[in-house]
Design a protein around this nucleic acid. Structure first.
Lengths: 242, 242
DNA sequence: TTATCAGGTATACAATCGTCTACTTGGCCA
DNA sequence: TGGCCAAGTAGACGATTGTATACCTGATAA
């Protein structure tokens, strides 16, 4: 009768239906078995052919979401690195920081593109970050921590010389990944402010690394000719003071 | 007698019951009318004597939560400022930054104490931050933005001379308040790691301000004798290099 | 060919839900 | 004293929920 979703196996239909409902309507935990089956165009009892519980569907969705998220993000973040981009260990800090800023910009763009393409999955995942299920909550925290570790490795691979300590890079990566949940939700919810949000995210990352560099090698910052990007000016390319 | 009581102690019972259920069991939106009434020890129909909808209860809870949160936090953050604490506009940056670090430490302690005392309200509020109800979501965002503005004013009041621009202070305040949602949830969930979490929060704030100062007045950082606190060492007082 | 079986359907049932109407109670005031 | 009214209770309603049992269908393997 109801051929809303004709594509895929029953399992896929159910998971897609649950994802759609969770993204647009309520939280994962508040969804009903019949509600999901109805959305999938299936008989309520068909649900039991694929999952014994409703929790089991939640876990399955979460597994998929986790691998999609982590793989997708890692792929995209690796792209700059694989292109052979490296911060040249030049004597000129200005040159180096120009390159760093470019890489940050590119990475943020890729991440925000990704969450836009996978909006439903992403939103549902983030929702469970502070959600009421302890198991999903800690699973999501672990996922974010994993992504942060990936980011730290990438950054260290790009740096390839000790500008800041490894622990500091890891610390900053965790902070960035968590703050990016806010930036990306804002990004999805306010399409008209996307440029500004992107700029703020870039400045945030720069601020952290700038602070770390200033803390660990103050001379470098003092001697740098790089002008830190203003909050209200478009961050296209770093401006070098003459 | 009591004006509060006149509006009904049943109302309080219902709101307390809803808060308890939402904090321990599920999200606010997934609670049932009968469920809440049962928890409150009241007849389901009594609910209608106080609220016409279930949404109306949600709004009432949120109003209360908002004022409690903002007032409580502002009170506590103001305490250092009211004590007359000011960053002395000394020629010695080391002295100044020592004081700043002390204030940050004290403020974080007060905030984390507050969320511990109001755990249930706080958790429910944060849960709606990324929740499924657009109205509660944006209400919560606005609340956080308001708190961030409060913080910015406090910081500017303490600084009283242009170390970093006003816009930068506001920007950093927003970033800090948002990141603090993570720190404070970790703080509540992992009592055994509270010292470490506190230390990380302090370092985060220091990193941001350090970055901003380095960006806007690099000389100050280079000439400073302050050693930036290590990640793994207790942040008791800043160490001044001899 | 036939038996097996995963995937999908139909019907039924007890429990719970939100909500309606009607009744009781206790305090307040004219 | 009587009347009013907010607060709470009792019972019933139709709808929806999760789940159990039984049945159907098409593919696959022996």
């Amino acid at each position: 009768m109801n051929d809303r979703k004709r594509s895929g196996s029953g399992r896929r239909k159910l998971m897609d239906a649950a994802l759609e409902l969770a993204a647009t309507t309520r939280s994962l935990a508040s969804l009903g078995l019949r509600e999901v089956a109805r959305q999938a165009g299936l008989n309520p009892n068909t649900f039991y052919r694929h999952f014994k519980d409703f929790d089991e569907l939640g876990i399955a969705m979460f597994d998929e979401l986790g691998t999609v998220l982590r793989k997708g993000l890692r792929e995209r973040r690796l792209r700059p690195a694989e292109k052979g981009r490296r911060l040249s260990n030049t004597e000129d800090p200005a040159q180096m920081l120009t390159e760093a800023q470019g890489i940050i910009q590119e990475s943020i763009g890729l991440v925000l593109d990704f969450v836009t393409e996978h909006e439903a999955s992403y939103v549902v995942g983030i929702r469970e970050l502070h959600g009421s299920s302890p198991v999903l909550r800690s699973a999501m925290r672990n996922l974010l921590d994993g992504i942060a570790q990936d980011m730290a490795e990438d950054v260290l691979g790009i740096l390839e010389f000790p500008l800041v300590k490894r622990e500091t890079v890891e610390e900053i990566s965790h902070l960035v990944i968590r703050q990016m949940t806010f930036f990306s939700m804002d990004f999805l919810e306010h399409p008209e402010q996307r440029d500004q949000i992107k700029r703020r995210a870039e400045r945030f990352i720069l601020l952290l690394f700038w602070g770390a560099i200033a803390a660990e090698s103050p001379r470098l910052v003092a001697d740098s000719k790089v002008k830190f990007p203003e909050l209200n000016e478009p961050v296209s390319a770093p401006v070098i003071r003459t």
